[in-house]
Structures are given as structure tokens and as C-alpha cells.
Design a protein around this nucleic acid. Structure first.
Lengths: 166, 166
DNA sequence: CGCAATTGTTAGCCAACCATACAATATGCG
DNA sequence: CGCATATTGTATGGTTGGCTAACAATTGCG
């Protein structure tokens, strides 16, 4: 049960030294948990989410909602289940998201002709327009995420992250 | 719950070809959104979260809860605000998480002697025991996250992710 | 002393996620 | 063909996390 990859510098922590004393510098030390990869993915995601939310307050869209609009635009007539698989969501969650987008008249459900069980999803004109604005905002957001990376590093990071989610 | 293969090839997307036709292979193409870094961080986080949740179903702990237990153990007597800053949470969210942990008798709040406004947090014996089990489970989880990485790549990924969340 | 900042607390809102159960439709097998 | 099974969408309810806003207690500063 040891921390495998990062045993080198076992962080010396004085249990009482900074018990009450808040962070001295700008960054707060988080101790040995700092070596946990999953923890940093969490923090990075949190930071991205916060910036995304800021960027999209005006458009009033969430990450998931943008993803769905984008995917429906790329695959007009896609079924909810297919969409759910591509974005790794379950059917119930997908329902909730689509309901919200439909309530805003960004997309509509058409009963599929080939399979009566399926709902074919299509963007409404309003959804199309909103997606255009969203893509523009995504550009800003992406620039922020990449603010400390070279193109090469971005490519590398992309490749590494893809390995995590297959 | 489904097939997860390995994706290293850029999938060509025909806007209309697979509009209705579900994914042909094992992986579902997500189109041009595939090039968005933020999107991959999201997917990677989602995958980690799912695996974490599975790993911790028996212990009945969430990522945030483990982080808090760990940090309180590293810094006994830490105040809620300090803890919140280190984990990038706001005070209200921190309250909710600490309440849950306290309800399980994993930690306790002691009024700080130096500053009457602060609550000094300490692990209870039950929390200490649970943290030990949690750290063991984290080992498994980490091994899963790193399953496709060399030690060098892990170190690199860690460094890149840290740049995102400062 | 009095005022402002910090800290904790409560309340309410929302998005996402999961599990479950149910209805409608498709499909396959006897 | 008819019926059992699988798929797809839906409704319901619960949990977590995140945010804002307000408020009380405490501290610290001018």
C-alpha cells in the first residue's frame, strides 16, 4: 500500500509545526497527498470547471450542455443512448440535460423513423446560434487552460489524458 | 460497463455517415470536440471519479471526504478555512463535507484556543482507522490510474497538471 | 471604543450522478 | 405468428458538490 511512483522524497511533516499556522507562501502545502495523480486530476478539473463557469455565465451553459449541443450538431439525428455513450453518461443523466436544453428551445426530439424507441435529436436554430457563440467562448477558455503550455506540451498532455479515459 | 479499447488513431468523421448509425467499432467518435483540452480533462476526471467511487463503495467515502481526512491527519488542528483554501473549496461546501464526516464520528471540531472564531479539526480514532483503510484503497486506485503510464510519464503528467491549477 | 475583516454557520438553489421502476418498441426464438 | 427478452426513453427520488447570500461571533486595527 505504499505510494509507488513517488517514494523518493518522503515529505517530512511536522505534525504540529504548521498545525495552526496557515500557509506561509502563496501556495498551501497539501502534504503527501501531493504525490497522488488522481488528486491532481481532480484539482485540474476543478480549476477548469471554475474558469469554464465564469466564461459561460453570460451564455448560461454548463460544460455538459455545450458538449451535448456540439455532439448533436456533429451528428444530427443522434439518439440519446448513443450520445450518452459517447459522453460517458447514463440515460437518466442524459434525460435531465436534454430536458434543460429542450426547455430553452436549443434542440428538439423527433421520434426516429427506423426505430420507434429512439428519439432523434436535432438542433433548433436557437441552439445552432448558441453553439456558435459557445464555440467562440470555448476558444477563450481553451486559451486559458493552455496558458502555460507550448503546443508540444498540449499535444503530449492530450495524449496522456486520453490514455486515462481510453 | 462497456467496452473500452484503446484509442490512438484519429477517427475520421463523416458528418452524415454515422448520424443515425451508432458507433461501429468499440469507441464512439466525438468529432471535432476531440481536440479540446478541457474536454479531455473532463473525461479523464470522470473516468477517475467512476473508478474511485467503485473502489470506495465499501468504505463509503468520496474523493473530497478522503482528501479532507488526509489533510486533517497531516495538519491536526487545522481550521476549516485553511483546509478549504488548500483543497480549493469555499466555506459553505467545506461545512457540508465536514458535517458528513463528523456525523460518522471520523473527526471532531474543537474551538481554537488562539482564535475563538476558528474550529480546530482533529481526527477521531475511527477516522484514523478509516484513513488507513482509505490510503490502502488509494493505492489500488492510483495503480489503476497509472496503468498505462511509465514512472517517467506519471511524473510528467503530474507536472503538467500542476501547471493548470497553479 | 467602534468599525471592518475573518470565521463559521445556515439556508436555498442548481447541476450532475446514480439506482430503480415502468412503458413503449424491437427483436428473436419456438 | 405469438410471446419472452432486450433496448430505449421516462419519471422519481436520493446524494454529492458547488455557489450565493445572509447572519452571528470573534478578532484586530485605527
Amino acid at each position: 500500500m505504499d505510494a509507488q511512483g513517488n517514494g523518493e522524497q518522503a515529505l517530512i511533516k511536522d505534525k504540529f509545526a504548521d498545525a495552526v499556522t496557515p500557509p506561509p507562501g502563496e501556495e498551501a502545502d497539501i502534504g503527501e497527498i501531493n504525490g497522488i495523480l488522481g488528486f491532481h486530476i481532480r484539482l485540474a478539473h476543478g480549476a477548469c470547471l471554475r474558469h469554464f463557469t465564469e466564461t459561460f455565465t453570460e451564455l448560461d451553459l454548463t460544460q455538459k450542455q455545450v458538449s451535448v449541443l456540439w455532439l448533436v450538431d456533429d451528428h444530427p439525428g443522434i439518439a440519446q443512448t448513443d450520445l450518452a455513450q459517447r459522453l460517458r453518461m447514463d440515460r437518466a443523466t442524459t434525460m435531465a440535460i436534454i430536458n434543460r436544453l429542450q426547455a430553452k428551445h436549443y434542440l428538439r426530439r423527433d421520434r426516429s423513423a427506423e426505430d420507434g424507441r429512439k428519439q432523434a435529436l436535432f438542433l433548433e436554430p436557437e441552439g445552432q446560434a448558441m453553439l456558435s457563440r459557445a464555440k467562440f467562448a470555448i476558444g477563450e477558455h481553451e486559451a486559458w487552460v493552455k496558458r502555460h503550455f507550448t503546443d508540444k506540451e498540449v499535444k503530449l498532455l492530450l495524449e496522456l489524458l486520453a490514455r486515462i479515459h481510453e
